[in-house]
């Protein structure tokens, strides 16, 4: 699903017009990004939580180049989906 298609689906239900809804949509995600940057964490109920994890530096072997490489540390955004979502997604499998 695309961003535009998502907005198209949402603004029909909402009291805002398309442009308005689009701008609000973008603003919401901007704020989520900001909060993740600031607090390294943001939780959306019944959807999931975004958090920042640090991957420590480590040495890996590159068998193609036959060399040992040292990877630098890295801060990574991690999304942990809510249980209800995972359940709903895996409903078909059950």
């Amino acid at each position: 699903m695309n961003k535009d298609s998502l907005i198209n689906k949402i603004y029909v239900k909402s009291p805002f017009n398309k442009n308005h809804s689009k701008s609000i949509f973008n603003r919401i995600f901007e704020l989520i990004k900001g909060s993740v940057k600031e607090n390294n964490f943001f939780e959306i109920e019944e959807f999931g939580e975004f958090s920042v994890e640090r991957r420590e530096m480590k040495v890996i072997a590159d068998p193609d180049k036959m060399s040992e490489i040292l990877l630098p540390p890295k801060d990574k955004v991690v999304f942990k989906p809510a249980d209800n979502i995972i359940k709903s997604v895996n409903l078909g499998n059950d």
Binding site: K33, V36, M66, S67, P72, K76
Partner: peptide, 17 residues
Amino acid sequence: EINYNFSDLVPVKIKTL
């Protein structure tokens, strides 16, 4: 934006194996 602390770092080749 998240990895701004370590964005300058690059993986380094330590030695050949």
